[in-house]
Design a binder for these strands. Structure first.
Lengths: 173, 173
DNA sequence: TTCGGTAACGGATATCTTGTCCGTCATCAA
DNA sequence: TTGATGACGGACAAGATATCCGTTACCGAA
């Protein structure tokens, strides 16, 4: 098991990170601000993370671990997966809003997309443009989620999944 | 008309910017590096641009001006517009690759999307989820272009437009 | 409960980047 | 030709970064 001190320090840093991103945006604070907020020594930060971006990766890895445990065999299960995805997004809307529209956007988007792609790929049949289609559908879903967040994450997001289904059915033909 | 000195300075800065982004990525160089490359005084940079991001905006504004002059009334004209878009992207692939996957990603994506949305909106009929649909299609197109770039911009991009048409037709129903 | 190992600490530091100031010189357009 | 304007180099303070040190406090296995 991991040393308790390590766990505590990482937790403190990650919590501070989340709070600061939501409050000031990804580029709105320095590492100095971060370690002040986390109440952790400067050296300690660098003992655990190489840069701010590592912290973002750290969070996505956690989330990914959480999501990969869900079953994705049947269409219904995949719908459940997406609902879980939307639910998590909704409950951390402030964080995602800051991420998707800031300096962490590139990494956040890549991570988000890779999580989504796994499920989308299962919906797309073999095709000459399969790779293009998967990229397009993932991009479409991500764009819809982003717009949902920008509009204040109203509703359960079911409209998004419905609209998405429309596109998926087109991809199948 | 604009003072020749002003034109020359801006051109020098923008050329250096393009070269450095393509070579080292958006976050891979400092303003110091930029003015060294452009062989321009530090003060001079700040007399024209507030930050690195302004230079990116400057480039997109140019591109936008170029594209808005194209007609977009008929479906065929809109297809031509998209072909022009893809053509330009292809001939500046190195630049876009660095932008869409780097720190300038947020602004670059916003700009790219806003250029695309105008055309996409014309394809989508009135609908209860019109806004969502437009966002999705724009996102899909952008994702396809990004994948195209990552794969080495092979071909004319016609496959992208074909696949895109499939999705558009689904959105119309 | 002890004890060797390990993590966190504060403080210091060298280096880089940023944005702004100045007076001087070169270039422009009228 | 000339008054206006832009570009220049040099310098500067402020802030951030990443790494060093010796010391202290905590952990968990024996």
């Amino acid at each position: 098991m991991m040393d308790r001190r390590v766990r505590k320090t990482r937790e403190a840093l990650y919590s501070a990170f989340v709070a600061l991103v939501a409050e000031r945006g990804y580029d709105g604070f320095s590492i100095q601000d971060l370690i002040d907020e986390a109440d952790v020594g400067r050296t300690t930060f660098y003992a655990h993370f190489k840069a701010k971006e590592d912290l973002l990766q750290f969070g996505f890895n956690r989330w990914r671990d959480e999501l990969t445990s869900l079953p994705k065999s049947t269409a219904a299960e995949r719908r459940g997966f997406m609902e879980a995805l939307l639910g998590h997004t909704k409950s951390h809307a402030g964080l995602f809003a800051a991420l998707l529209g800031g300096g962490g956007g590139a990494l956040a988007e890549t991570e988000f997309r890779s999580i989504v792609e796994e499920v989308v790929a299962a919906e797309v049949g073999p095709d000459e443009h399969r790779a293009t289609m998967i990229a397009m559908l993932s991009g479409a879903l991500l764009a819809a989620i982003r717009q949902w967040i920008d509009a204040g994450v109203k509703g359960s997001g079911a409209e998004i999944l419905d609209a998405f289904d429309k596109l998926v059915s087109a991809a199948k033909r």
